[in-house]
């Protein structure tokens, strides 16, 4: 099956570029983009207002099953470490049509930390363009991304808490 040489070359370049790019990946150390979103009481919150604290950003949605499994773990961590300076922020990636469900689902999950609404995907697009949910980002006191967790597997909460605990111990 002959294929034009130019196409073979371009196709191969696409492949190689992708492989090289993925092979050198690390999200740690990048500045966490600031954002301004309204919470469920319509109060505007920004990431930068929590500068100096360790922040866990949890991107989730009401229709996301693994999100609902992860959230009780995040809530438990927030309950345990909130007094030590941990901030957990839930960012709902639900679009406008399921917006009325966000607070009821948050309440049914027992969430007590702030939940913000990113109805237009503006923030999730910056952190996670693929919009994989859940997507958990740990931000250090300086405002840099310490680590990210894409999706949720049992035991991930242990890794998140380990990362958070280590950051809380830092000046």
């Amino acid at each position: 099956m002959p294929v034009p040489a130019t196409s073979r070359a371009v196709g191969a370049l696409v492949l190689v570029a992708g492989l090289v790019a993925t092979g050198s990946a690390s999200a740690a150390g990048k500045a966490a983009p600031d954002f301004s979103l309204r919470d469920l009481n319509n109060v505007t919150q920004t990431l930068s207002q929590y500068k100096g604290k360790v922040v866990v950003l949890d991107f989730w949605a009401t229709w996301c099953g693994p999100c609902k499994i992860e959230i009780p773990h995040l809530q438990a961590m927030y309950t345990e470490l909130g007094a030590k300076g941990l901030v957990v922020i839930g960012i709902s990636a639900d679009d406008a049509r399921s917006s009325s469900q966000v607070k009821p689902v948050a309440m049914s999950l027992g969430i007590t930390y702030p939940v913000l609404q990113d109805k237009d995907s503006a923030v999730v697009s910056q952190y996670d363009p693929a919009k994989t949910l859940p997507y958990t980002v740990v931000v250090d006191k300086a405002g840099n991304i310490a680590t990210v967790f894409s999706g949720y597997n049992a035991g991930d909460e242990v890794k998140v808490q380990a990362a958070v605990t280590a950051l809380l111990g830092q000046p």
Partner: peptide
């Protein structure tokens, strides 16, 4: 995961996006 660059000072009275740098995702 070594030492990360320090974020620039944030002006609490104005725009305060954390510092620069390029991040991204790659999907092949």
């Amino acid at each position: 995961g070594g030492s990360a660059p320090e974020a620039p000072p944030v002006d609490a009275s104005g725009p305060n996006l954390a510092g620069g740098g390029t991040s991204g995702t790659e999907d092949l």
